[in-house]
Design a protein around this nucleic acid. Structure first.
Lengths: 222, 222
DNA sequence: TAGATTGTTAATCGATTAACAATC
DNA sequence: TAGATTGTTAATCGATTAACAATC
């Protein structure tokens, strides 16, 4: 059936990363609008106006989620939020382990917002015996030597690294060996992984550079 | 003098943000190479090979810093690092204040690496009287009510926000009123600023979405 | 109906990638 | 010299923006 083939091709169509990054921003905005004001319908014009994104881009972004709007009215807020949730797979949460229960690790453990985005950090691991056995933000801290076994037993797929730079590669290797297939790297160093393993490196230096370059150009202009 | 005009036009030429984000990655890599192995010259081919970036892009990126390489040899590592430092303005460090000395704030205060990128967080502010007067990672914590005065007196231009979402806008307003012109926002909420003020929002939800979508597509394919 | 908004196709813009002469 | 690499110009690719018919 030709119609089916077209549909299959469409599902394979690549998702632009910039769009992907904007979707949670729309979602956060919609949730706010939903809670604070009881609005039933919202237009791309209004979303764009409030978020400083041109309306055409908002529509293009939302298109990918298969959200359907009504001409003149806009999108039904609840439906739109559901479309985003659905598209991003927030219906079924993924469980993750975090290694390195320092300040940064604790900050992440304490951020309950991740659950909303389908991520549940269920436990943390550390090398420091003083931390092992305690809880941070209600999450248990285990000895790092339990990591391999627990990843395997629980079938955990996502690992979060918040260790000092010197330990990041070692932790990475343990995680991958145990079956982790996606790593969120907050350590201030590059990690090497075999092809196929997904890495998201949160590089603060890159962000800082963008900020300070913009500032430098601004100060220069004034 | 026409030559001069062309030069002026060139300095105004916009810098692609992706390039800007990659420059510190090259720099981190070069520093590592410089310390671990005593290499004098390095080629775009080798840099690209190690960082998974195609060599043409490496050359294009480095071109913007006015770095000059030698055919057959590559770039002088020290010169290249200097060119990047110079282009990004890391020669003269900028001082910054941080507001919100929680786990995340403490993590940022403790990361000495920022100094290398031209940013020096010189003090922090908090509302919690138990924290005020203490130091975190050697940085003094002041009462939030001193913020306006100290920004003005010291002419601070960069503010970092690591408060809970509920306080972020209030802190933003105080900062801007006192003369801050660039804000690095780590709070889990959007902040509104007047046009002209630079905001860099570290949105973890966006990063998480990219990671988990990649994972979902990977798991689906296997 | 008139007007605002959606959905979709086309045009533009900018970043990435390719090609290749110049050079050490 | 031969071969690898740079520097620069051109081609490609993908995201953003524009245009406009369809629609409520």
């Amino acid at each position: 059936m030709p119609g089916n083939n077209i549909r299959n091709l469409q599902t394979v169509k690549p998702i632009p990363e910039p769009t992907l990054r904007r979707l949670p921003i729309y979602y956060q905005y919609l949730k706010k609008m939903c809670n604070e004001q009881k609005i039933e319908y919202i237009s791309a014009t209004q979303i764009g106006g409030d978020l400083n994104i041109i309306p055409i881009q908002v529509r293009k972004d939302l298109e990918i989620t298969d959200a359907v709007g009504k001409p003149k009215l806009g999108y039904n807020v609840i439906e739109l939020m559901y479309a985003i949730e659905n598209f991003l797979g927030w219906n079924n949460t993924t469980e993750a382990f975090l290694v390195g229960a320092g300040n940064l690790g604790s900050a992440l453990l304490g951020y309950n917002g991740f659950k909303e985005y389908g991520l549940n950090i269920i436990a943390a691991f550390d090398i420091d015996e003083n931390k092992v056995g305690t809880t941070v933000e209600g999450k248990m801290i285990f000895n790092i030597n339990k990591l391999t076994d627990m990843i395997r037993r629980m079938g955990i797929k996502i690992g979060i690294i918040t260790t000092p730079p010197g330990n990041a590669q070692e932790v990475t290797d343990i995680m991958i060996d145990a079956g982790i297939c996606a790593i969120w790297n907050f350590s201030h160093t590059k990690i090497n992984v075999p092809t196929g393993v997904i890495v998201q490196h949160e590089n603060l230096a890159s962000s800082l550079v963008v900020l300070s370059k913009k500032l430098a150009m601004f100060l220069q202009a004034n």
